[in-house]
Design a protein around this nucleic acid. Structure first.
Length: 588
RNA sequence: GCGCCUUUAACUCAGCUGGAUAGAGUAACUGCCUUCUAAGCAGUAAGCCAUUGGUUCGAGUCCAAUAAGGCGCGCCA
C-alpha cells in the first residue's frame, strides 16, 4: 500500500524544512515561525515533478526577494537518500524538484507487487460506513434518476472500500406509509375496472394478453377513468390483471380495505423482486434490504416522537405534533404526527437514520439524494442533533437531475404520467458498461444530459470503449510476446531505469497517482475521479504505444523494460475497471 | 419572494487546499497502417473562464452583487 507520489511529495517538503533549519542555525534565516508552503505538481513538466512556493510565501519574513531565498534554500538542501536527483530555481522563485530514475522503477515495482490490490489505501481503516442508494419506491419500476443514483452509489461504495473503509450497501424499502396506501388504491381501482363489464370485454377481446390489455385500458381514460392522486402506470394494470388471472373476480365482492390489502400483498413482493433483479443486472448487489415497515412494527417510529418530546423539541399545534427544527438550522418547523394521528414520512426516516448511526453504530451514513430532495437535508440533520447524534456523521451526496437526450431533443422525466423511461428499458438499449461508466463520468453534482444515441454507439466517441481498447491492446501485446518466448513475469522493475522517453515517464507518473486519486475520490465522494483517471491512463498508454514499440525496441533490455511497464499499466487499468465493475475484454 | 446547484472553446466537460503560457473529448480541417489491434497516434484551428466590483505578491479558483438556467420551499414521499 505504498503511495510513492505522497512519499516523494513529503520528501520534497522535508528537504526544504531541513534546509530552512540549517539556515536558521546559521543565522541566515529569521528564527520566528515561517509561513506554511505548498508542494504541488506543476502542469508544465519542464518545471519539474514537484514545485514548492516556499521562497515566495516567506518573502516578507526574510525581507529578501523570493529568488534570493530560493537560492539560500537550495544551497543548504541535501538530496542524498531521497528520490530526487536535482532542484532548480525558476520563475518568480519556485523551487522545482526533479525525480530520479530510482523513483520510476519503484513505482512500477509497487504496482506489480501489489497487483490486484494496487491503489488500495488505509485511509478509512477501522471505520464502518453505510452507503444507502437508489431506495426507489417499491410501488413501480425504476427510472433514469435511479440509474444514475445506482451507478454513483455503487461506485462510491467500491471506492470507499478501496480507501480502506468497511463498507455496506443498503436499499431502504419504503414498504409502509402513504405511498403504499396509494399503491393499494391504484391496484384496487384497476382491479375493479377489470372486473367490470367493460373490463371483462377488453380482456375477452385482447385474448387475455396482459400487454394488450394494459395498453387498451391505459389509453382509454374515458371508459376507465382514474382520479388525480394515484399511480397511472401500466405496471399497475399488469399487476391487477395478473392477480385477476390467478384469483378471478372473487375479491371484488370483499370490502375495499380487504381488497387493497390482498392486492398489495400480491404485488409488492413482486415489485421488490423486480427491483432486485434489475439492479442485479446493473451489477449492484446490496448487503441489506432494509424495510421501513420494521421500524413501524418494532415501535421505533413511536419512540422517536417520544424521544424528541422528552428532549423538549416538540409541541402541539392545530392537532398535530411539530418538531422545532427551526431551532436547529432548518428554515421552518416540521410536522411529525398529523392531526389524524398518522406520522409523516419524516418520522420513520429519522428512526431509520437513528438505526444506522446508533442502533447499528456505523461511523458514517452516506445517502445519495436526487436534487429534488435537497431541501430535506437540514431537517434530517436537525433531527439527529436533537437526538444527541453528531449530524456530521450523516453525509448526503446530492446528485443533480438527468436529462435524457435523444435525437438532440430533451425528454422530460415524469413519474406521474407513468411514461418515464425505466431502468430496465435503458439497460436493454445500452450496454451495462456504458451506463455505469457514463453515469460516473461526471461529478454527482453536475447537471448532465445523458445522450442515448451516444451511449448506444460502439465507436471511439464512447470513452468506455477507449479505455477497454487500451486494456485489450496490452493483453494481446503481452500474449504475443509470451508466445514468442518471453517470460514476462520474471522481469523485475529495475530494468525500467533505462526508460527515458516522455511517453514512458508520463505513463509511470500517472501510475503512481492511483492511490491518491482513490483517496481523493473517497474524500470528495466523487466517483468521476476514477473514470477520468482511467481515461487518462488509457490516453497515456495509447500515446506510449504509438511512440515506443515494445516488440521492435532497439535493445533487448529496453524491450524487457517496456514489457514490465505494460504489465504495470495493465494492472492499474484492471484495478480501475474493477472499481467501476466494467468488463475487462482481452480482445476487441 | 427565500434556499440549494450550475455558468470555462461550436457541443459535453476537467481545472486538486489560490500559483508559472487555461486543458481534454466530440464536431471541423491536415497527415500517419508491408512493422506489437487505426476502436489508435501526430498536427491545425477554436477562449472577455457569464457580468461588475472586492480580498493580495498573484484569482478560472476566495468574497459580494447582478444576469441566465435547473431544482426545492405540503399535516406528499
Amino acid at each position: 500500500m505504498a503511495d510513492l507520489l505522497k512519499l516523494a511529495s513529503s520528501q520534497a517538503r522535508e528537504i526544504i524544512l531541513d534546509s530552512l533549519g540549517r539556515l536558521v542555525s546559521l543565522g541566515k534565516a529569521p528564527a520566528e515561525p515561517l509561513p506554511d508552503f505548498i508542494i504541488e505538481i506543476p502542469t508544465d513538466k519542464s518545471h519539474g515533478d514537484f514545485a514548492a512556493n516556499a521562497a515566495m510565501v516567506m518573502a516578507k519574513a526574510f525581507r529578501l526577494a523570493p529568488r534570493k531565498i530560493a537560492e539560500l534554500i537550495c544551497e543548504e538542501a541535501v538530496l542524498d537518500g531521497t528520490y530526487f536527483e536535482r532542484m532548480e530555481i525558476a520563475g518568480p522563485g519556485f523551487i522545482n524538484f526533479f525525480l530520479s530514475k530510482k523513483w520510476f522503477s519503484a513505482v512500477a515495482d509497487t504496482v506489480i507487487c501489489e497487483g490486484d490490490g494496487y491503489g488500495r489505501t488505509k485511509t478509512g481503516a477501522g471505520k464502518r460506513v453505510l452507503v444507502e442508494f437508489v431506495s426507489a419506491n417499491p410501488t413501480g419500476p425504476m427510472h433514469i434518476g435511479n440509474a444514475r443514483g445506482g451507478a454513483i452509489g455503487d461506485g462510491l461504495a467500491e471506492i470507499l472500500d478501496w480507501a480502506g473503509y468497511s463498507v455496506e450497501r443498503e436499499f431502504y424499502v419504503n414498504d409502509a406509509g402513504n405511498q403504499i396506501e396509494k399503491f393499494g388504491k391504484s391496484l384496487d381501482l384497476r382491479y375493479m375496472q377489470l372486473c367490470s363489464k367493460d373490463g371483462l370485454a377488453v380482456m375477452a377481446k385482447s385474448g387475455n394478453e396482459t400487454d394488450k390489455i394494459c395498453e387498451a385500458i391505459y389509453n382509454d381514460s374515458e371508459t376507465f377513468p382514474m382520479p388525480e392522486d394515484v399511480y397511472l402506470g401500466m405496471d399497475i394494470i399488469a399487476h391487477a390483471h395478473n392477480f385477476f388471472m390467478e384469483n378471478g373476480a372473487g375479491l371484488s365482492k370483499q370490502p375495499e380495505e380487504e381488497r387493497r390489502k390482498q392486492l398489495v400483498a400480491y404485488a409488492l413482493p413482486k415489485n421488490i423482486d423486480g427491483l432486485e433483479k434489475d439492479l442485479g443486472k446493473y451489477r449492484i448487489t446490496y448487503d441489506t434490504w432494509f424495510r421501513e415497515s420494521t421500524l413501524h412494527n418494532d415501535g421505533s417510529v413511536k419512540k422517536i416522537v417520544e424521544m424528541l418530546t422528552e428532549r423538549g423539541y416538540t409541541y402541539e399545534k392545530e392537532g398535530a405534533i411539530w418538531f422545532k427544527s427551526s431551532e436547529l438550522g432548518d428554515e421552518k418547523d416540521r410536522v411529525l404526527v398529523r392531526a389524524n394521528g398518522i406520522p409523516t414520512y419524516f418520522v420513520p426516516d429519522i428512526a431509520y437514520h437513528y438505526n444506522k448511526l446508533v442502533t447499528r453504530g456505523f461511523d458514517k451514513a452516506i445517502d445519495i439524494f436526487g436534487a429534488d430532495h435537497h431541501g430535506y437535508i437540514p431537517r434530517m440533520k436537525a433531527a439527529l442533533t436533537a437526538l444527541g447524534v453528531d449530524a456530521d456523521r450523516l453525509d448526503i451526496v446530492i446528485m443533480q437531475m438527468v436529462n435524457l437526450v435523444k435525437d438532440g431533443e430533451k425528454y422530460k422525466l415524469s413519474k406521474r404520467s407513468g411514461k418515464a423511461i425505466t431502468l430496465s428499458t435503458l439497460l436493454d438499449e445500452i450496454p451495462i458498461d456504458a451506463a455505469r461508466f457514463f453515469f460516473n463520468y461526471r461529478e454527482p453534482n453536475s447537471h448532465f444530459d445523458f445522450d442515448l444515441d451516444l451511449a448506444v454507439e460502439k465507436s471511439s466517441q464512447n470513452p468506455v470503449f477507449y479505455v477497454q481498447y487500451a486494456h485489450a491492446r496490452i493483453c494481446s501485446l503481452i500474449t504475443a510476446l509470451r508466445v514468442s518466448g518471453y517470460d514476462v513475469e520474471s522481469y523485475n522493475a529495475e530494468e525500467l531505469d533505462i526508460l527515458d522517453k516522455p511517453q514512458e515517464i508520463e505513463l509511470i507518473r500517472h501510475l503512481a497517482s492511483l492511490p491518491e486519486v482513490i483517496d481523493s475520490a473517497a474524500k470528495t465522494y466523487d466517483p468521476s475521479k476514477i473514470t477520468k483517471y482511467a481515461v487518462e491512463l488509457a490516453t497515456l498508454f495509447h500515446k506510449f504505444y504509438d511512440a515506443c514499440s515494445v516488440k521492435n525496441a532497439e535493445t533487448e533490455e529496453l524491450k524487457k523494460a517496456r514489457l514490465v511497464l505494460c504489465r504495470a499499466v495493465l494492472q492499474a487499468l484492471r484495478n480501475t475497471l474493477s472499481i467501476l465493475k466494467i468488463d475487462k475484454p482481452e480482445k476487441m
